Computed example of a mutant assay.
Amino acid sequence: MCFIYVLAGWEDSAADGRVLRDAISRPNGLKIPRGNYYLVDSGYSKREGFLSPYRGVRSWTMIGALEASSRGENLCSKIDVWKKTYACITDMLARSGIGLNMTTQMIVVSDEVFKSYVKIDHFAKTLRFKSFLYYLTWTEIFGKDRVTREHAEDIYMH
Rank of each mutant, 00 (worst) to 15 (best):
N74C: 11
D121G: 00
Y117E: 04
A8G: 10
R58P: 00
L66M: 05
M1T: 13
P27A: 08
T137F: 07
E140K: 15
S25Q: 11
I120M: 10
L75P: 01
G72I: 06
V109A: 13
E73G: 08
A68V: 00
I141Y: 05
K31A: 07
V118C: 14
V118S: 08
T85I: 08
M102R: 11
E48V: 15
P27Y: 02
T126W: 03
K46D: 10
T104R: 03
K130Y: 02
V81S: 12
S70K: 05
P53N: 10
Y38N: 02
W10R: 06
Y134P: 04
T137H: 00
S42E: 14
L100M: 14
L20W: 07
G72P: 03
R95C: 11
A23I: 02
A68C: 02
L30Y: 05
S42H: 05
W60A: 15
S45P: 11
L7K: 12
S110A: 07
D145N: 13
C2Q: 11
T137V: 15
K83P: 04
H158V: 13
T103L: 04
K83A: 09
G43E: 06
Y134L: 10
K119Y: 00
I89G: 06
C2R: 12
S52A: 14
I63M: 05
L136K: 13
M92A: 14
S116H: 00
E153G: 02
M102E: 13
K115P: 08
I98L: 04
W82V: 00
F129R: 15
R18N: 06
S52Y: 01
D121L: 01
S116A: 11
V113L: 09
G64E: 07
E67R: 13
K83G: 04
K83R: 14
R18G: 04
A23Y: 01
E140T: 14
V108G: 09
G99V: 00
M62G: 00
D80W: 06
D154V: 01
N101D: 12
R21Q: 12
E11P: 11
A14R: 08
V57I: 04
S131M: 05
T139K: 14
I155D: 09
K130A: 07
V109I: 09
A94C: 02
T61P: 02
V147A: 10
V19K: 06
L51D: 09
Y135P: 02
V19T: 00
V108W: 08
S96I: 10
R146D: 01
L7A: 09
R58G: 09
N28L: 10
W10D: 09
I24K: 12
L133D: 10
T126N: 12
N36P: 07
M102L: 09
K125S: 13
D16F: 01
Y134I: 03
E112C: 07
L136P: 00
Y37I: 06
V108Y: 12
D91V: 06
Q105P: 06
M92V: 01
L127T: 02
G9F: 02
K119H: 01
D12P: 06
Y86H: 10
E150T: 08
E140H: 14
S110Y: 02
A87N: 14
G72M: 02
E73K: 13
S77A: 11
Y38C: 05
G49A: 04
L30K: 03
S13P: 06
V81T: 15
G97W: 08
Y37C: 03
C76E: 14
R71V: 12
A152C: 09
Y117F: 15
P53D: 09
I79P: 01
K130L: 07
D22R: 00
D111V: 09
R47F: 04
P33S: 11
